[in-house]
């Protein structure tokens, strides 16, 4: 095993180009488990923790551009007000020890269907910035996941950052696990309300081969809100519409039975979480609107 430790982003990209098989490592929360438990022996390993560029975040036009190496702890502490959904999801990641090391970039790289950051990134139409010595490209996160633990990255690419709009309205994240902390999602759901674009964003975790959105559910709920003029005059949303929203979210999932839960339960739970999440978000929106 070869250990590569670039100190700059340029150097990192050059190393990745020269060693396309190199396994990038940041917080180690996925990669080290594979090595420690003898599940995988990468030929070479590329440590990105010395690349300071990856640890920075800032404005990029109307977006926030967040370096792939920013930890969950920093997202909660430094970006929680602007990205509440992602911060809520970050708070459910592992433990303080894990959040101190784990990064959204690493979560994207692993592309596990259960990755906690993925649903809020989907719900906010985030964009992933990929880079290689050949250049940089930006890919909507909705196009990033290609299969279980597979993503759209080319062999010589690294994840530089993700870009996301600061919240324009309420956001929620909800995750089912079978204990009250430190648990991988049985299934999870993220919701974004964007009153500016009159848009509902969704993201579903751990209930399909990849993280997915609930497209039809989004359009249905947007229709309900538009029809009733509810964005402008926020009244309560009809219970049957909420139930339908839940059903459509559940229908967007393609869950399986596994050690963490059954497919039927996952669908059921998604419907409940979707309904509740929208209820909380809509309450918040109505409260703000009436102030």
């Amino acid at each position: 095993m070869e250990f590569l430790q670039p100190s700059t982003w340029t150097e990192a990209l050059q190393m990745k180009s020269a060693h396309p098989e190199a396994m990038p490592i940041a917080g180690g929360t996925d990669v080290m488990v594979e090595i420690n438990l003898d599940r995988h022996r990468p030929a070479s390993i590329l440590d990105l923790t010395r690349v300071t560029e990856l640890n920075q975040w800032g404005a990029d036009g109307e977006f926030l551009r967040i370096g792939a190496g920013v930890t969950y702890t920093r997202i909660i502490g430094e970006l929680g007000d602007r990205l509440p959904g992602l911060a809520m999801a970050s708070r459910t990641v592992g433990s303080p020890q894990i959040r101190n090391r784990g990064t959204v970039g690493g979560n994207l790289g692993s592309a596990s269907p259960a990755g906690d950051a993925h649903p809020p990134l989907l719900a906010t139409d985030a964009v992933v910035e990929l880079a290689s010595v050949g250049g940089t490209r930006r890919l909507p996160v909705r196009e990033f996941f290609t299969g279980p633990k597979r993503n759209a990255m080319k062999q010589d690419e690294l994840i530089a950052a993700f870009l996301v709009s600061p919240a324009k309205g309420p956001q929620q994240f909800s995750k089912v696990g079978t204990r009250n902390a430190m648990v991988i999602a049985v299934c999870s759901f993220a919701l974004t309300l964007d009153p500016v674009r009159k848009h509902i964003g969704t993201g579903i975790g751990s209930a399909a081969p990849t993280p997915v959105i609930a497209d039809e559910a989004e359009r249905f709920l947007e229709g309900v809100l538009d029809e009733g003029g509810l964005w402008e005059k926020p009244a309560s949303v009809d219970a049957s519409a909420l139930a339908r929203f839940g059903e459509l979210v559940a229908a967007a999932a393609k869950p399986i039975d596994d050690v963490r839960g059954t497919a039927a339960y996952r669908r059921h739970a998604l419907a409940v979480m979707a309904r509740r999440s929208f209820g909380w978000a809509w309450d918040e929106y109505r409260t703000k609107a009436s102030e």
Partner: peptide, 15 residues
């Protein structure tokens, strides 16, 4: 100064 699990830090990362 940051609390971490030593098992998830690759030796070289501690350089």
């Amino acid at each position: 100064g940051v609390l971490v699990c030593a098992c998830l830090v690759l030796g070289g990362q501690a350089n």
